[in-house]
Simulated assay, not measured.
Amino acid sequence: MNNNAWVLSYLPPRCKELGCKWILTRKMKLDDIIDKYNSILVIQGFRQHEGIDVFDTYALIVRISKVRLLLACVATHNLMVHQIDVKSAFLNGDLDEEIYIKQHEGFMMPGSENKV
Score class of each variant (00 low, 15 high):
112 S>L: 07
31 D>I: 07
92 N>I: 04
73 C>E: 10
4 N>Q: 10
10 Y>K: 11
70 L>K: 00
87 K>Y: 09
39 S>T: 05
59 A>H: 00
67 V>D: 04
33 I>D: 13
98 E>V: 06
32 D>G: 01
45 G>W: 01
29 K>Y: 04
45 G>D: 00
34 I>P: 06
112 S>H: 15
30 L>P: 07
87 K>L: 10
85 D>L: 12
109 M>L: 09
17 E>W: 14
10 Y>D: 14
44 Q>H: 13
84 I>E: 12
17 E>P: 08
75 A>M: 03
82 H>F: 11
44 Q>E: 14
56 D>T: 04
87 K>N: 09
78 N>W: 01
65 S>E: 14
13 P>L: 09
102 K>T: 14
113 E>D: 10
77 H>D: 01
94 D>R: 03
99 I>K: 05
106 G>I: 14
30 L>G: 15
11 L>F: 11
75 A>L: 06
45 G>Y: 04
21 K>V: 05
115 K>S: 06
54 V>L: 05
19 G>I: 13
6 W>P: 01
110 P>E: 13
22 W>T: 08
32 D>V: 01
102 K>A: 13
55 F>L: 10
25 T>K: 09
32 D>F: 10
4 N>L: 12
20 C>L: 14
7 V>A: 06
60 L>K: 03
50 E>A: 09
60 L>R: 00
103 Q>W: 15
31 D>E: 11
95 L>C: 12
66 K>P: 02
95 L>I: 09
31 D>H: 11
31 D>V: 08
102 K>H: 15
84 I>M: 12
25 T>A: 09
25 T>I: 07
70 L>W: 02
89 A>Y: 12
26 R>T: 08
42 V>K: 00
108 M>I: 12
49 H>C: 02
101 I>Q: 03
85 D>Y: 11
39 S>P: 05
5 A>S: 15
53 D>L: 09
100 Y>A: 03
90 F>T: 10
50 E>F: 10
54 V>E: 03
10 Y>P: 04
81 V>G: 02
80 M>S: 08
38 N>F: 06
69 L>I: 02
33 I>E: 13
58 Y>N: 02
26 R>M: 13
50 E>M: 09
87 K>A: 10
102 K>F: 12
102 K>D: 14
25 T>N: 08
53 D>P: 04
85 D>C: 12
46 F>Y: 06
37 Y>M: 03
23 I>M: 11
93 G>Y: 00
110 P>I: 12
8 L>D: 13
37 Y>H: 04
31 D>W: 08
78 N>Y: 01
64 I>D: 04
32 D>A: 06
27 K>R: 11
4 N>C: 05
113 E>G: 05
77 H>G: 01
80 M>G: 03
46 F>A: 02
90 F>V: 12
40 I>P: 00
93 G>T: 02
53 D>E: 05
5 A>I: 15
105 E>I: 12
53 D>C: 02
112 S>A: 07
64 I>Y: 05
16 K>Y: 02
32 D>H: 10
61 I>W: 00
83 Q>L: 03
60 L>S: 00
21 K>C: 05
24 L>P: 11
88 S>W: 01
33 I>A: 11
114 N>L: 07
116 V>P: 03
41 L>K: 03
53 D>K: 04
72 A>Y: 11
91 L>F: 07
92 N>Q: 11
62 V>F: 03
40 I>W: 00
42 V>D: 00
45 G>I: 01
